[in-house]
Design a protein around this nucleic acid. Structure first.
Length: 80
DNA sequence: GTTGAGCGTT
């Protein structure tokens, strides 16, 4: 139950994401990768939820949502 | 600014 959250503002934190997604289902994990060289957020994140239902619900409600001046992109994550 | 790490040879 992993999904990709892209087009994030660099001001959006892990905490912000967790709060957003928790409103649509049970969030089990949030990961915000930072650039290995610059230490800067990369502008996207990964959220894991407890079920596909939660995931679909969150995607349907949050994809395209304007947060911090940017429209979120939410969909199922690709394999790493 | 669009698909995760870190160690250090998988």
């Amino acid at each position: 139950m992993k999904m990709y959250v892209g087009n994030l503002s660099y001001d959006t934190t892990k905490q912000d994401i967790e709060t957003l997604f928790a409103q649509h289902g049970q969030v089990t994990d949030v990961h915000v990768p930072t650039d290995r060289d610059t230490g800067r957020p990369r502008g996207f994140a990964f959220v894991t939820m407890d079920s596909k239902q939660s995931m679909d619900n969150a995607i349907g409600s949050l994809d395209g949502k304007n947060v911090d001046g940017r429209n979120l992109r939410v969909n199922e994550a690709r394999p790493r």
